[in-house]
Structures are given as structure tokens and as C-alpha cells.
């Protein structure tokens, strides 16, 4: 049985002669929230469009629920809810009227589906305000309501919290988490905001310039969010010997001939200094450093990172 709700293999997408996505292998596990993280223009939306079959694939393959998506497959859409880029609705209609149109087109049998979806995103039912007069946040909420009202198994949300106020962001985040915990829905969400993704996602894919640089569970990535001590000493091999022998330290890394990084040794640093000096190892510099997740992203995306 396939464990992935979405799986891509060597997915390559082109806009004219320009390659937007290159050999992307995405693995979105069922019942989990997958955060696609990348800067603006990195290719997040293009991947989502490819998964939905909205744009032609140059090469590679996309599988949704284990089935290959080569062309539009009608049967798959009732199982997916999507919001790609800015929400698009009819400005001369109210939010409720807009959703009722899409509910009718989808053939949603649940009588209160629209009302429930609007309640979930905090929008009034049968309000007289037209979509054209909505604020950005309200438009975004309506977009999310449109993606969820038919109770899909898979949600594909492209930067869904854009334009929402902090409370709104927290509400949507809690709701999406609840969906995966209580209803075992799978969610593919994109964002350029690291903090947002780390608060929500179970698995993270980092994309930059159309290339998926890394794909790992959040728990694994957070291991890279560490504090360490950078030591510059006269004799690195002897220092390593002392650290292992006297302090039982194994979590360190040698940077060059005179520099090493000590992880999880912040508490013992006074004793370490004293021992090294007694063993005739000169300590030129010792400083506390931290290697955050953001630094990691900045490094792997070529120095500029994400917001």
C-alpha cells in the first residue's frame, strides 16, 4: 500500500525555455502536514500546480493517492481541496454566494457544507458584503473555506495565511493541525516564512531556484538548531584527546587546524578551559555560538535564506 498522498519523481517543469522546477522528488506522507518552504519565486506554486494537473509537466511523474497524474483526471478532484496563489472569486457575489456556486459545481451533497466551512474560517454565513469589498484576510479565509467545504482527504494550500492578522494565522494553524490529528487529512502547505512552517509542518521540503534541496521531518531538521562553543586552540589533536578522555565528549566537529566546535558542552566550558591550560594547550579563543534553523536554511539556499 502506498504511504504517500503525493509523490513526485524527477519532476521538471518549464515555462517556455526557462526551467522552473528541476528533478523534484517530493514525498508527502498520508495524514501529515508537509511544509514546502522557499523564497518567493522558488517554485512552490509551480509544484502545487503540477500536482493538481493545472500545468503540463515537461518530464518526470506526479502520483496522487498512488495514481499517476498525466492529464486532468476528474475522479481525483473531489478528494482534493486547493487554494493556489490569491483566491479567485466573483466580485459581484457575496462570500456565501460564491461558495454556493462552487458547491453546486462540485455536487456537494452535505446541506450545511458551505455554512460549516464559513464558520470554520470565521466568516459570516449569508452576509451581504460582496467579495469585491472583502479585505485581503477575508479573501484568504474564503479561499480556505472553498478548499475545505467538500471535506477533501488532501489539502493543497499555497501560502494560505498571507494577509491574515496574527490571531487569524493562529486560528488557521490550529484548524489545520486539528484536521490532521482528528480527521487524518493530508496537507501540503507552502510558505516563505520559516517560523510559520516550523509551527505547523511535520515534514519540510526546502526548495530554492526550482530545486528541492532537502526533505526531512521537522524533528530531524530541528537537531540542526543548536548552540555550540567555538574553540581556537594551539593543538587540536591533543584537545580532542582530552575532551574524549576527561569529559567523555563525542559531539564535536573539527573545523580546521586550530578550530573545533563543541556541542552540548556549554555547562562544562570552565573546567575544559582549566584542563586544557594544565595540559599545556593554549586557548586562543572561546566563544558561544548558535546555529539556528534559519542559519541552516540560509546556508543551503545559497546565503540569502528565507524570511
Amino acid at each position: 500500500m502506498n504511504d504517500y498522498a503525493i509523490e513526485t519523481k524527477n519532476l521538471t517543469m518549464k515555462y517556455g525555455n526557462e526551467t522552473a522546477i528541476r528533478n523534484v522528488g517530493l514525498h508527502v506522507r498520508k495524514g501529515r502536514i508537509y511544509g514546502l518552504l522557499g523564497r518567493n519565486g522558488a517554485g512552490k506554486t509551480t509544484i502545487m500546480k503540477a500536482v493538481l494537473g493545472l500545468i503540463p509537466i515537461a518530464s518526470g511523474e506526479v502520483k496522487v493517492f498512488g495514481e499517476r497524474i498525466g492529464e486532468r483526471k476528474k475522479w481525483i478532484y473531489p478528494r482534493i481541496g486547493a487554494m493556489i496563489e490569491a483566491p479567485g472569486f466573483y466580485p459581484n457575489l457575496t462570500g456565501t454566494e460564491n461558495l454556493e456556486i462552487f458547491a453546486k459545481l462540485r455536487g456537494v451533497p452535505t446541506p450545511n457544507a458551505v455554512e460549516n466551512a464559513l464558520a470554520l474560517v470565521g466568516l459570516p454565513y449569508r452576509d451581504k458584503k460582496l467579495f469585491g469589498a472583502y479585505s485581503l484576510g477575508m479573501k484568504q479565509r474564503l479561499g480556505i473555506a472553498n478548499a475545505i467545504f467538500h471535506d477533501p482527504e488532501l489539502l493543497i494550500l499555497d501560502e494560505p495565511t498571507n494577509g491574515l492578522d496574527p490571531i487569524g494565522i493562529a486560528e488557521i494553524r490550529d484548524y489545520l493541525k486539528k484536521l490532521t490529528v482528528e480527521s487524518e487529512k493530508t496537507i501540503l502547505i507552502s510558505s516563505h516564512i520559516l517560523s510559520e512552517i516550523t509551527l505547523l509542518a511535520d515534514d519540510i521540503g526546502i526548495i530554492d531556484r526550482g530545486v528541492l534541496l532537502e526533505e526531512a521531518p521537522l524533528s530531524e531538521l530541528t537537531k540542526r538548531d543548536r548552540r555550540y562553543i567555538e574553540l581556537r586552540v594551539s593543538d587540536v589533536p591533543k584537545t580532542v584527546l582530552i575532551l574524549e578522555r576527561d569529559f567523555g565528549l563525542k559531539d564535536y566537529s573539527v573545523q580546521d587546524d586550530c578550530t573545533l566546535h563543541l556541542f552540548d558542552a556549554v555547562e562544562d566550558i570552565g573546567k575544559i578551559h582549566r584542563t586544557l591550560v594544565l595540559e599545556n594547550v593554549a586557548v586562543y579563543e572561546s566563544r558561544h555560538c548558535s546555529h539556528t534553523l534559519e542559519d541552516y536554511f540560509r546556508n543551503i539556499t545559497g546565503g540569502e535564506g528565507v524570511a
Binding site: 475522479w75 482534493i80 496563489e85 479567485g88 472569486f89 462540485r106 472553498n146
Partner: peptide, 18 residues
């Protein structure tokens, strides 16, 4: 022009209607 002007093509293309 309605779908083009209101950017609703993308909503319509992910529903089971051709």
C-alpha cells in the same frame, strides 16, 4: 471573460467539471 478577469479558472479546473 469572467473567469479570466476574476482569476477563477484555477478554482474551476480543480472541480470535476470539464
Amino acid at each position: 471573460f469572467m473567469e479570466r478577469d476574476n482569476d477563477t479558472f484555477k478554482n474551476l479546473r480543480v472541480i470535476p467539471v470539464t
